[in-house]
Design a binder for these strands. Structure first.
Length: 331
DNA sequence: TTTAATGGCGCG
DNA sequence: AAAGCGCGCCATTAAA
């Protein structure tokens, strides 16, 4: 048995099935079935039923007070989990189209949580990398593996990417080891090396944990708090969960604060200028707009400007802009 | 028929 | 003993 679920039964999740697929033919078939069944039940069967008969569109609902980090949550239908990672899934995203005469514009913040980690920690190396508009995973790989940036190979960059994301989530050496399929001691060495190269991040992580334990909450850059009642609790598993949440919440939460400020700025500008462009969706670090052809150039330019300068952090904010006849093309 | 728990998986 | 944050929704199962 590879792994158990929280209730103690054998897990059959994707990770387990991928492993079993090395030895048996069935798991691969089951994975393919699961993938297709997911797309059919959640998206292709469901979304057409949710088209509003008056407007001919699907309309999501956004909740302000659900996610503890301050993110919005989308439901009925959830438009924040429309597939994008596989070719089959992307075909569902292609169904989100602009009306005749308009285009879909997508604007997403680049590496927003890592930039916030740089800002909150004040780490000089990380700040410098973003100031110089570097590929952050490549820069991290160069530091951790001790090579020049243009000597970083694809595996080293992949490792660095997993480390960077892991840091944001409060991942342990155990988690990093299983993610990279390496020894735990090797994973610990990478983490030690990372913190040696980015001491400001190390210091930030330590003080965030300490603050959570002494005050019982952590804050975003704008001062919004997440209370962590279990941070000093007796239940070890829950306490460790609270510690990871304490690490993650300031970064995820500050990102949520920033994009909400951006949404207000964008909508205010559209109204002030009496434009026909519509802000139609938010997906955590991305805004999606429906833009008439004649407003395209103006909106794309101003959108980037508003999003980049919604707050002045110690790092530049960068925005990726895409445009297309449908949501998939806009990426 | 509804509600709740569970396992699983789509997204950032 | 677990081990990576935040969501919503699906099918299944059991119970109300």
């Amino acid at each position: 048995m590879k792994k158990k679920t929280p209730s103690g039964t054998p897990s059959t999740d994707e990770e387990v099935l991928q492993e079993l697929a090395l030895d048996y033919p069935l798991p691969k078939i089951l994975l393919e079935y699961r993938g297709m069944a997911k797309l059919k039940s959640t998206y292709t069967d469901k979304l057409p039923q949710m088209v509003n008969s008056r407007t001919g569109r699907v309309h999501t609902s956004y909740s302000q007070g659900v996610a503890v980090t301050g993110r919005l949550a989308s439901s009925d239908p959830n438009l924040q989990n429309i597939p994008i990672r596989t070719p089959e899934g992307r075909r569902i995203r292609e169904a989100f189209i602009a009306p005749f005469g308009s285009r879909i514009v997508s604007a997403d913040y680049s590496q927003i949580e890592l930039r916030i980690m740089a800002h909150l920690s004040g780490d000089e190396g990380l700040l410098r990398a973003f100031a110089n508009h570097e590929d952050i995973h490549r820069a991290t790989a160069a530091e951790v593996f001790g090579v020049a940036r243009d000597a970083v190979n694809s595996e080293q960059r992949r490792y660095a990417k997993v480390i960077n994301f892991g840091l944001i989530y409060g991942m342990s050496a155990f988690g990093l080891a299983s993610q990279l399929n390496i020894e735990r001691s090797a994973a610990q060495q990478y983490i030690d090396l990372y913190f040696a190269r980015y001491p400001g991040v190390k210091n930030y992580m330590d003080s965030t944990r300490a603050q959570a334990k002494s005050q019982g909450y952590v804050e975003t850059w704008f001062g919004r708090r997440l209370w962590l009642p279990e941070i000093n609790g007796a239940n070890g598993m829950r306490r460790q969960g609270a510690e990871r949440a304490a690490i993650n919440a300031p970064m995820q939460g500050t990102a949520a604060d920033l994009i909400k400020l951006a949404m207000v700025a964008v909508q205010n500008w559209l109204e002030r200028e009496q434009l026909q462009t519509l802000l139609i969706m938010q997906v955590h670090d991305e805004l999606v707009l429906e833009v008439p052809q004649e407003e395209l150039a103006l909106v794309k330019e101003k959108l980037r400007d508003l999003m980049c300068h919604v707050a002045e952090l110690k790092v530049p904010l960068e925005v990726g802009l895409g445009e297309g006849g449908n949501w998939d093309e806009a990426h």
